[in-house]
Design a binder for these strands. Structure first.
Lengths: 238, 238
DNA sequence: ACCTGAACACCGTTCAAGT
DNA sequence: ACCTGAACACCGTTCAAGT
């Protein structure tokens, strides 16, 4: 598992750098999950001592912020840019969803520091697409924040589900929860959830995410895209 | 700060119980923040040893889950129940927002375990209101999840903002971030955010939350409330 | 300037021993 | 049965000492 070539137990040849540390951190997080990222594990992977890392990044938090930003920037670079506004925003939102699937720890990280680097990237790309979509300027901040908050909620749930169900398979995990909703005492006080229990086990996360985006975009379009008469007005800020 | 009556340094008279532990945990979390909740602090407040707590609750996570559920149940009990469907859902969503304002640590907690007790309460009340609002059954699961995910995103951001800005006042904190968005290098690659920088410092969190709810409800109403012809259909699950 | 790694000041959790 | 609190196995971070 460690030391692939123990014979050549040489010192690191290339100098340590913030980028190298972030690379190693992403590798550990992806392979072994959030709680496996410790300074001891990271410095072992980098063949150095824990103190050395602090010469390049000031804290664990800073490493996580940078790692999340790296992935967000990378994934956005791969989204085709020749799409119309409507398809553009959908593709970008889906890119985020798939990012959380591939790197669930990002979902935890994004809620750990407000307006961190990765969030700025997400806010920027969402907002510029909304502008292209014709959302009036006075609604742009709120509309972009709404989509961002929805994405962050999904990301957080995804991360915690993955953390908890690392061994258990997904359907068994959902079945357990649905069984809890069907429990007599719970069902009596929670009739709506009881009714939804079967949908919980069957639902497709990705499709549900798409449908959620559709709700929000439909609302934004109805309220905030310039049109002669919108009968559902919300207060404009300022 | 500790030992209010050091003379009468008696053993606890009432027996320790899960409820008493949860009470004490909420008090510590509210007064001193998330990272102040340790078994040492908690057992000191309860005048017992750290091990005693484990006889009633199995882990720190279990304490946090129960504490969050307690607050959600309490706050929902105070929401007037004689409102029509439209006002009912808005009041419930606002009650959540105000809960996160009064107890920011809840926002972190809700993303820590998937479908935990507090989330079931939230899902249930949101869903039953959507049902009353006339949302078709095949859309109810997705619609309730969308609102829930939005709320969770807001809650997480709120929690992390509070954690970071415990000393700093809010407007100074936002001004710092907005200044970052106005930084020449950042602004060049993030024109949308540059444009929004002033709105960031001026915006009202609560109003923005209300506006976000309005977007989502408008979308749900347009798509999922029974009406002869809706021209924006989303795929129905199953 | 950069790296090293032992040491520090904590955690959550366990467990032998008490009542 | 319930409680006690020292001990265990960790953390993130610091810092004197090396190169």
């Amino acid at each position: 598992m460690t030391s692939p070539t123990p014979a050549r137990r040489s010192r690191r040849t290339d100098a340590l750098s913030a980028d190298a540390i972030i690379d190693a951190a992403i590798a550990v997080l992806d392979a072994e999950g959030e709680e496996a990222l410790t300074f001891r594990a990271l410095s072992a992977a980098l063949e150095t001592g824990p103190g050395a890392i602090y010469h390049h990044l000031a804290s664990k938090q800073e490493i996580l912020v940078a790692a999340a930003q790296r992935l967000v920037v990378d994934v956005l670079a791969e989204v085709p840019s020749d799409l119309d506004a409507e398809n553009g925003i959908r593709e970008v939102m889906l890119a985020f969803f798939d990012l959380f699937g591939a790197h669930p720890w990002v979902g935890t990280q994004l809620s750990r520091e407000p307006w961190q680097a990765a969030l700025l990237e997400m806010f920027e790309v969402i907002g510029s697409h909304l502008d292209a979509l014709g959302v009036e300027e006075r609604y742009q901040f709120t509309a972009a924040s709404s989509l961002l908050n929805f994405v962050l909620g999904v990301a957080g749930q995804h991360a915690s589900a993955t953390r908890l169900a690392r061994d258990l398979d997904r359907s068994a995990f959902l079945r357990d929860i649905a069984d809890g909703w069907k429990d007599e005492a719970t069902a009596a006080s929670h009739p709506f959830s009881r009714q939804m229990a079967d949908q919980l086990t069957q639902h497709d996360d990705r499709q549900q995410y798409i449908d959620g985006i559709d709700f929000i975009l439909a609302g934004i379009t109805a309220v905030a895209v310039d049109s002669p008469a919108s009968n559902r007005a919300i207060e404009s800020p300022s």
